[in-house]
Design a protein around this nucleic acid. Structure first.
Length: 289
DNA sequence: AGACGTACCTGACCGC
DNA sequence: TGCGGTCAGGTACGTC
């Protein structure tokens, strides 16, 4: 499912329900997602208090007072649903509180907290995965050790980007998908950022001028910030609805707009779609040169 | 090292 | 209605 803004939104949605809570019970409903669950996964979570949540790239990290961190990657279709403490769910047919719905298809992990609330992980395609590791060793985790800077931090800047791609002859679209270059971007936001910065996705990465890289850096930050803001406002609606955290309504300029008129001011191009490293790229051939 | 391609999995959708 | 092909927001791993 998700790129950085969606993961950030999910994490922020989980925070108020999880921080300071103790994990009373963990139901692990299958042996693996994309990879096997870590050894004794439920036991290692149970009894622990949740100290804080954070995000690195597209990973959610949950810091526990046991000294371990619970790492979650949502893959393509991972979602969390919150059954907040005190909510009464009628669908189970049982009267009274804590009467939660039965597990739905593709619910793989069900966490029960000490206030009676639940956090349910659902993942249709099972490209997501989870791990547990000593919090002190976070920087050494194989999934986290080799990823690039957070795009919203100062560590992602023109100099860093120019340096990271100076030897890369591949198309800029494919290069920006590389999590070692910059963390957290995915297919949609790269299409959007290139559209906003007028860069043709086919351009060899090392052929882009410093001036245009500088614009790209600014635009990436802008696109992600806008999306996080949209996700934040959508969180209010999740509370009212069924507690599901995941995608939110968002309007794209290029992604998914094949055949439509380019919405860039003063541009009368038509958005086209083609395939790059196995993924769909959407762009406007008229203003993305 | 870089630059590919392939694999992992389910479901939605489209044309016949 | 059914069936096969294609596509989907990600990443690890194999090969050249």
């Amino acid at each position: 499912m998700p790129e950085l803004p969606e993961v950030e939104t999910v994490m922020r949605g989980l925070e108020p329900h999880m921080i300071g809570r103790k994990i009373n019970h963990v139901e692990q409903r299958r042996a693996d997602l994309r990879f096997p669950f870590p050894e004794n996964f439920p036991t290692r979570l149970m009894g622990a208090e949740i100290i804080s949540l954070s995000r690195r790239a597209k990973y959610i990290l949950v810091q526990l007072d046991s000294g371990e961190s619970w790492m979650i990657h949502l893959g393509m279709t991972g979602r969390f649903t919150i059954n907040a403490a005190g909510d009464v769910k009628a669908s189970s047919g049982q009267a009274g509180h804590n009467s939660w719905p039965l597990a739905e298809p593709h619910d793989h992990v069900i966490i029960t907290l000490d206030d009676g609330g639940r956090v349910v992980y659902n993942d249709v395609r099972r490209f997501g995965y989870m791990d547990l590791f000593a919090t002190a060793n976070e920087l050494d985790h194989p999934s986290l050790a080799n990823i690039g800077p957070e795009p919203l931090s100062d560590k992602f800047n023109t100099k860093q980007l120019a340096n990271a791609i100076q030897k890369k002859k591949s198309a800029i679209k494919s290069v920006m998908l590389d999590q070692a270059v910059v963390a957290g971007l995915g297919n949609i936001y790269i299409c959007e950022a290139l559209w906003r910065s007028n860069i043709n996705p086919k351009t060899p990465a090392n052929k882009i001028s410093t001036k245009r890289l500088s614009l790209l850096v600014d635009v990436v930050k802008e696109v992600l910030s806008d999306a996080i803001a949209a996700g934040g406002s959508s969180l209010k609606d999740y509370r009212k609805a069924d507690g599901e955290l995941g995608y939110f309504q968002h309007q794209w300029d290029a992604y998914g707009k094949e055949g439509e008129e380019c919405g860039k001011e003063g541009c009368d191009g038509i958005i086209q779609r083609f395939t790059q490293s196995g993924r769909s790229t959407f762009y406007c051939p008229k203003h993305q040169k």
